[in-house]
Design a protein around this nucleic acid. Sequence first.
DNA 1: CGGCATCCTGTTTGATACTG
DNA 2: CAGTATCAAACAGGATGCCG
Lengths: 134, 134
Amino acid sequence: METPVCTDATTADLPFDVFARACPSRETLEHVTGRWGSLTVGALRDGPCRFNELRRRVEGVSEKMLSQTLHALERDGIVHREAQPTNPPRVDYELTPLGREVADRLLSLIHFLEGSMDEVLVSRRSYDTARGGR
Amino acid sequence: METPVCTDATTADLPFDVFARACPSRETLEHVTGRWGSLTVGALRDGPCRFNELRRRVEGVSEKMLSQTLHALERDGIVHREAQPTNPPRVDYELTPLGREVADRLLSLIHFLEGSMDEVLVSRRSYDTARGGR
DNA sequence: CGGCATCCTGTTTGATACTG
DNA sequence: CAGTATCAAACAGGATGCCG
């Protein structure tokens, strides 16, 4: 008695609908847009990268969160992990072809936002002053 | 290589860099890509919408979270709130021009992911079986 | 270097109840 | 209808320690 889970209502004809409660696409969207997911994917668009360099690119991420984020992205097929059994170990992460498509769309959003921050900041100030002490 | 907070290192010449620790663009990105933020913005791209209808479009969101999400988006200038002092009250939410630009980029990502879920699901299965019980 | 396991805390979230 | 208030539960995230 599975509910038809992902019968699309908004965009028609796609089997997956992120707006539907239990659609797996929602999980993937969260992996990709999550706090660290978006930055990780975005950072990897600059090229393959080792664990600790990635950590440096994504300022503020902890080892644990980066590790966790990378696992989720690897599982979804967004990121490829290449480990060399050398000593000390060397592991490179890179975007898959799918991941690159995702990254491009994400970066389009990110760059747009970066370029709109002046406007955002103005909006914030007027919002805040409009309801001053509250 | 210090940290003048928002000196862009990756894309050059933009004053805001989401990869930098304390850049305000990171907050906005989180509002927009957050668990409910992305779905709310995406849902509003279908047109202005009252509170409870929005709740229905974004399956699974609670009143509290939707309210909170909308406030953050309104403050950032992504969403406009239009309240009529009637009884019962009627409040319409809609995207600002800025919000529409954001929504378009977000939906591009969302639709791409929805269309890639078969691939994602295959990747998940092989990842899971590759490390079976563990 | 590139992790994983554990512990522990603060934030986020979701029900529930209540208001104008 | 359109929210706010409150409280408990869940989870994210940091710190630390260990290992190949």
